[in-house]
């Protein structure tokens, strides 16, 4: 190789380096728009979008439980089902991708019946008292779980408190798979938990149901971040709820940056009466996608220790 031309000077720390062009990510292919009909209204969404995306674009509210933007759709709760013209059964809006010419009904009698039954099935077998979405859904679909009686099978079981950070109350678990996805392939890749067993007794478990401290759990809390029912809860919140002091109306939320490494994770600090009570991260944050590690999620307790106690 020939000797480099001498024209360009060697860099020196004293002189700022001139600017280059502003870098860009490679252009991804432009997606074509696909038009479908939802409840008689035409709507266009990009190829690869789902019926749920199309419905949302029209402002049509579709109930979801197992769906979350940051997770691969598992379409198991079936509360988002819609009626697709030409399909034998209803289809899950959260995962069914749009195809040209689709015509979808989101509020037909069949849709309403299935959604009602799904809500009744869940509310009659699971404690949904801390699931924020349920009251509104139940009202909207006129769900009456009590019509299955009092002695019906439920998933009621003792609360699992086996460490100081998490509480797992599987009486509240609707088996939406979100925690498994967040612990596994969609975020944390730790796979401390999986769905075990089969049928009505299928449940979220570590291997042989060993306590969390014996499992692979690294206490990132990302499972709690995605749980839609409060089955998984921070111990701090659980204790306050038990004591009757948890009051979200008195809480502030402030976004800041985690101090524990250079990645720059966005922390949302939930404080009640100027005390930190919980830490989350926004789902739409490009750094975290809602995920944190044990330090970011729980390492705040030192702030709450009074200076005199600080060593």
């Amino acid at each position: 190789m020939s000797k480099p031309a001498e024209s360009a000077a060697a860099p020196t720390a004293l002189v700022p380096i001139p600017r280059g062009p502003v870098p860009h990510a490679p252009e991804s292919a432009r997606l074509r728009e696909i038009e479908i009909q939802v409840d008689g209204k035409a709507v266009s969404v990009p190829e690869g979008a789902t019926i749920l995306d199309a419905a949302r674009k029209l402002g049509i509210e579709t109930p979801t439980l197992c769906f979350l933007e940051t997770l691969t759709p598992v379409n198991v709760c079936r509360v988002c089902v819609v009626e697709l013209e030409g399909a034998r059964t209803l289809v899950p809006a959260c995962s069914r991708k749009v195809e040209p010419g689709m015509s979808v009904k989101t509020d037909s009698e069949r849709v309403r019946l299935s959604r009602k039954l799904v809500l009744e099935f869940l509310a009659s077998s699971v404690d949904v008292s801390t699931a924020p979405a349920f009251p509104e859904y139940m009202e909207r679909y006129d769900a009456h779980p009590e019509r299955f009686g009092k002695d019906n099978a439920t998933v009621a079981q003792p609360v699992k408190i086996d460490n100081d950070l998490y509480v797992r109350d599987y009486s509240k678990c609707i088996l939406c798979y979100k925690c498994v996805e967040a612990c596994g392939i969609d975020a944390q890749n730790t796979f401390a938990i999986a769905v075990a067993g089969r049928g009505f007794t299928a449940h979220i478990a570590t291997e042989f149901d060993v306590p969390l401290p014996d499992s692979a759990c690294v206490y990132c809390g990302n499972c709690i971040g995605v749980c839609p029912t409060g089955a998984l809860m921070f111990k701090s919140e659980y204790d306050m709820r038990q004591a009757g002091t948890w009051d979200e109306s008195r809480q502030t939320r402030t976004d800041t940056i985690c101090p524990y490494c250079g990645v720059g994770c966005d922390l949302t600090i939930h404080a009640q009466d100027d005390k930190i009570v919980r830490v989350t991260s926004p789902l739409d944050n490009s750094v975290t996608h809602g995920n944190l590690c044990i330090k970011g999620r729980f390492g705040w307790q030192f702030v709450e220790v009074q200076p005199a106690e600080k060593k």
């Binding site: 379409n75 198991v76 709760c77 079936r78 509360v79 299935s114 039954l117 799904v118 099935f121 869940l122 009659s124 077998s125 299955f148 009686g149 019906n152 099978a153 609707i174 088996l175 769905v195 067993g197 089969r198 049928g199 009505f200 007794t201 299928a202």
Partner: peptide, 20 residues
């Protein structure tokens, strides 16, 4: 009730409520 895989709600709970 014995053979449902338990994945989706209508089947997981439905077959139980049906038997009940």
């Amino acid at each position: 009730r014995h053979e449902t895989c338990g994945q989706c709600v209508p089947c997981r709970v439905g077959v139980v409520r049906q038997e009940e």
